[in-house]
Simulated scan of single mutants.
Amino acid sequence: MLTVGIVGGQDAVAAASRLRALGVAAVLGPGSAVAFRIATSDTSVDTRFVDAVLSADEPVHVQVERLWTTRLRPWSEALAGGPVDRRTAAVQVHDPRWQWAGRRGLDRVRSALSRLDPAGAFRYDHIGSTAVPGLGAKAFVDLQVRVTRLPDPAEIDRAMNAIGFLAATGARPDSPGVHRDLPRGSEVVPDEVWAKRLFTSPDPVSPTIVHVRRADSPWGNHTVWFRDWLRAHPDQRDRYQEIKIRLAAEHSNDPDHDDYTRAKTAYFDEVQGVFEEWAARR
């Protein structure tokens, strides 16, 4: 559910009416029962808890139209199969709002997948660079779901589409981390353990990636260990940031955004054993 905050006495009824007229109820895809709610305040709305704010600075209809034009319509068109820019994005200075975006995204995904997990066995993590305070990152929030077994593709695709996500296809058939993770680390496991499902949200303001992995996949642990290792070692965090900035610049015009991912392999080969040993000592 998208939350629109309205402050300064703006007309919430008018805003909601205009959003519905523009077709916002369908923006999160077929099957979404409620696409947005309104939060109002006479003074301020805490931006940590809303997705968009309509202020008293402009007429509400002007702001609603801009929200639709710059965010909701492109999101809706991308969900319907429209073009998505897949070029490698630049690394940005860490934004504390990424922490909120991670929590918000996990709440949405957890709610969407609740019917597939009646026992509550799935585990949900905010991973990647946006989960490490102080670390620069491409502004894509990475989330992870660790599942007891991979759900039926049709079922999970419907659930994720309802909250604005599409199943990823990758830039080419061997794109890393789309249908399976590349084997990595010291643990020896059956080959089928590396299977996964990957989803992306083409929200222009808060793009998000969700990795659905088996609970017995070493990658599920690796992502959390690496995140926590960087949090605990600012020197390694800063070094990783320098590498990311350099590689993102080198691959900024590549038509295949996976080239950036592949380029980081040498770094991960170097630090894999280090953060594994660190995690084992905790």
Rank of each mutant, 00 (worst) to 15 (best):
E187F: 13
R146P: 00
Y124T: 02
A39F: 03
G9A: 08
I6N: 02
R115M: 00
R227G: 06
G29N: 09
S17G: 11
T40V: 15
F165A: 05
F140S: 01
L72W: 04
H251D: 00
D152A: 02
D107W: 10
E187R: 15
L113K: 01
S17M: 09
A137E: 05
R231H: 04
A14C: 13
A90R: 08
L230C: 10
L106H: 08
V109L: 07
I245D: 04
Y124F: 10
I245Y: 11
D57R: 13
A279F: 10
T88Q: 02
A12V: 12
K264Q: 10
S186P: 02
R86T: 07
W225C: 06
A21C: 05
R262V: 05
R227K: 15
V271T: 05
D46T: 13
Q92A: 13
A195E: 13
V91Y: 02
R231M: 09
L230F: 07
A195D: 13
A168F: 07
L116H: 07
D216Q: 10
A279W: 11
R197V: 04
V7C: 12
I6Y: 00
P255Q: 01
S111F: 03
D238M: 02
P207D: 12
V34G: 06
D142L: 05
K264E: 05
T70V: 07
T208S: 15
E277I: 03
W225M: 11
A162H: 10
P176F: 00
P151V: 01
E270R: 14
L166F: 08
D95C: 08
P133D: 09
P96I: 14
F36H: 08
A167H: 14
R213I: 07
P133W: 14
A139T: 11
L19C: 04
P151I: 04
A90Q: 02
R262I: 04
T208G: 07
V64L: 04
Q144Y: 02
W194T: 11
D191E: 15
D216I: 06
A159R: 08
S111V: 03
G185H: 00
G273E: 05
R108I: 00
T148D: 11
E187P: 09
M160A: 09
G23P: 07
S111I: 01
Q144L: 08
D258F: 05
T223S: 03
